[in-house]
Nucleic acid binder design. Structure first.
Lengths: 133, 133, 133, 133
DNA sequence: GTGGTCTAGACCACC
DNA sequence: GTGGTCTAGACCACA
């Protein structure tokens, strides 16, 4: 469900936070849903439980998560404010990063679009076999 | 010329390196060109000289930069291997980031392309007035 | 400057946060002031640096503290919003706690006032020798 | 009868213990009186029975409570030692908390007394209408 | 079983 | 020197 890029500079707990938020925005996680237990998620991501706990704690401080002692962590009702179309900002930011990179290398917009197409095809080929393209 | 994003998690020296490389790839910097002095660049970026020095040192280890004592740092001849359209890995990586984000939000490929288009138009509108489109 | 009550149930990092906030409200710490370094404060309080770091980090998330990499932690300008008379809430809360306790034991208000007087005299006697009463 | 502050850091079972003790000291509970059953109290406080059981168990270890199998929990005769004005430690502690807070904010003792007066008046005004002052 | 706090100690980026 | 992240592992409160 979540993937950690160990080569990235962005901290593990931030990667967890960002991917959970993305799933909330995308509607895959909804208010009231239980998050995976800290220990389970840590084990499946090969992370230390403290690292996952920090991600959950910060999401709680942002009001997205409610933790009930001894029961687990749940998406709070106010998590719904992330849902829906507001969540395209993250995507926008990433696309803008790519555009900035392209500009600094004098890659014209049309070529950038071609490149996106190319990467998308590559990605769909990767999935091939698990799911029909 | 170079901009440091202090909010980003990627280390300052990596930001300096990446942006210098991008300018080499884009042909804005060419073999033999002088790089700004460590102290000047540090001052203009509000960084500690050690940080800039580290960026230069690592570029030197990669063979892209040659330091001539007392004269400064220059792009070595081998920097030309980055020039042209060879160095698209950075762009690929950024596009892949966007694709991953889109997938995690269940945004289909076609919509992602539309979004790229939209951001490109936004960007060109921003430039309008400073430079002819 | 700060005292940790190891017998209390309130977490160490919360005690550090609360006492720093009280000092901001009381005007003893002002925007721009440097906080003691994490390691120093941890050493003087016999705490683990991680514990102090957590207190500082949460204060930063609340916008009261700004940390500059390699330089230290400083009170941000917005810390001034805590300053002045707004800060009596903490005191009010503690007095209300005492009042509630007194009520539950059927201790009348006048006796509560006498008790406060008595504890204040005890406290000033403790300080005797360091400072004139 | 008992209120649990879920935001507080003091453990639930300690809150239960403290409030029962306060009622003993205030004479509202007397030796021989039956305590509410563990399950009932747990249900009314929205706590797990284990938590209430722990509070009762510790009170029993302190000799304040005697459990008679199948009949429930009762205040033991030795509970009378808490009765009357003997148990002011709790109040002392709370007043000392307030004094410490005041000191850390440079609030002088006289102002602290004024504040206590002020909160007491506020409290009596709150009760007004339910009970004659 | 759940989450929460704390310690100890490693490694890194930055000044 | 500064703070930041991460790991490993202990102990506790709560269900």
């Amino acid at each position: 469900m979540i993937r950690i890029d160990t080569a990235s500079f962005t901290p593990f707990y931030e990667q967890v936070k960002a991917q959970l938020k993305a799933r909330i925005r995308g509607g895959l996680l909804r208010p009231g849903d239980a998050l995976p237990s800290i220990r389970d998620l840590a084990a499946s991501l090969l992370l230390n439980p403290n690292t996952v706990a920090r991600a959950y704690r910060e999401l709680e401080q942002e009001g997205l998560v409610a933790t009930r002692k001894g029961k687990g962590c749940f998406l709070s009702e106010s998590a719904s404010r992330l849902a829906g179309r507001g969540g395209l900002e993250g995507l926008h930011r990433r696309l803008d990063d790519a555009i900035a990179e392209a500009e600094s290398m004098d890659v014209p917009p049309d070529q950038l679009k071609d490149l996106l197409d190319q990467r998308l095809r590559l990605r769909s080929r990767e999935r091939h076999g698990r799911k029909k393209p």
